[in-house]
């Protein structure tokens, strides 16, 4: 069976700016696929092309076997899209928004209630409330319900968790994981590296280019240098001193530690002596497993 979403060599320029540079990937039915990258990386441009809102400069995209240029109308029928900005009608109620979006696709909330029940039931007690009066977490759930109400085959979510607190974010990812079991293909973007581990596969995106596409585990296993976490009482001087250390390749702050890679093999004893000679106390050095964020930075360097 061909993949649900097939993207081949998509590029897009805005004037002189290259927003997307020869991007290729495939997403399978029932897969939760994440695009991880900072603002300005090209995530929204890519999603606007996939949702037939923007033409690519060059390249091909097929969604469920249909061409995004020729078959854009048919694609819109099978696509659910949640833009980064809250784009429901603020002065319609929760219930009216859902009915409106179902109506656009010539269906009713009742016909597809089973698909959204898990999510919509959480906001149903507030169904008479205007959408503009909902909290951030509730708006997000309503927007997802509206994007799903016509039972799309492909769901595209542009930074759904940006600006949402940790509890709501966690619930949102749990919903997506239940949802994909219905066979829907889900493409989701996020600037937050720690959300990568919640996807089946991820693409790391930076400055219009894909740095890596794989399962989170495989991306981490490609990190070839041993990674060290170093700590001392004075983190800020520690960072400066580690950057002066002869063998240092990279040194980055990570919370209360500094993540260090070195040229060749690290002699922990030498490093400890060096740091003590610089006046550091409570020095700790330990080897650790890299995170997706370590991998992202490694690919940027």
């Amino acid at each position: 069976m061909p993949a649900s979403v097939i993207v081949e060599n998509i590029s897009k320029k805005f004037g002189e700016t290259i927003a997307l540079d020869s991007i290729s990937f495939e997403v399978n039915a029932g897969e939760l696929f994440g695009f991880i990258g900072p603002d300005g990386a090209g995530k929204t441009t890519l999603f606007r092309i996939l949702t037939t809102l923007l033409l690519p400069g060059s390249g091909l995209v097929a969604i469920e076997g249909m061409d995004i240029v020729k078959d854009f109308r048919k694609i819109r029928d099978i696509m659910g899209y949640m833009p980064g900005r809250f784009s429901l009608y603020q002065d319609l109620t929760v219930e009216e928004n859902l009915r409106f979006f179902a109506g656009i696709f010539k269906t009713t909330p009742e016909a597809n209630y089973d698909l959204v029940k898990d999510i919509y039931s959480q906001i149903e007690p507030f169904k008479k409330r205007r959408a503009g009066k909902l909290s951030g977490g509730m708006k997000q759930k309503l927007a997802l319900s509206c994007a799903l109400i016509h039972r799309p085959k492909v769901l595209i979510l542009d930074e759904p968790t940006t600006g949402v607190d940790a509890v709501s974010r966690k619930e949102f990812w749990e919903m997506l994981n239940r949802l994909k079991k219905t066979g829907i293909s889900i493409l989701v973007s996020t600037p937050y590296m720690d959300e990568a581990s919640l996807c089946d596969r991820v693409a790391l995106i930076q400055a219009g280019k894909l740095l890596s596409i794989d399962t989170p585990e495989a991306i981490i296993s490609k990190f070839s240098n041993p990674l060290w976490a170093v700590h001392s009482r004075d983190l800020y001087s520690l960072l400066g001193d580690l950057r002066q250390f002869e063998a240092t390749r990279t040194a980055f702050l990570f919370g209360q530690h500094i993540h260090l890679t070195v040229k060749g093999a690290l002699s922990q004893g030498d490093l400890k002596l060096y740091l003590e000679s610089k006046g550091h106390s409570e020095v700790e050095i330990k080897q650790i497993a890299p995170s997706i964020e370590d991998c992202f930075m490694e690919l940027m360097v």
């Binding site: 900072p38 603002d39 930076q206 983190l235 930075m297």
Partner: peptide, 24 residues
């Protein structure tokens, strides 16, 4: 107030280095 949303991880760390410097 939520100062570092949306930037790449290296820029974000440079930002935190500025914060440490300021606190010093």
């Amino acid at each position: 107030d939520e100062p570092t949303g949306g930037v790449d991880p290296i820029t974000r760390r440079q930002f935190w280095e500025m914060i440490y410097e300021t606190a010093r």
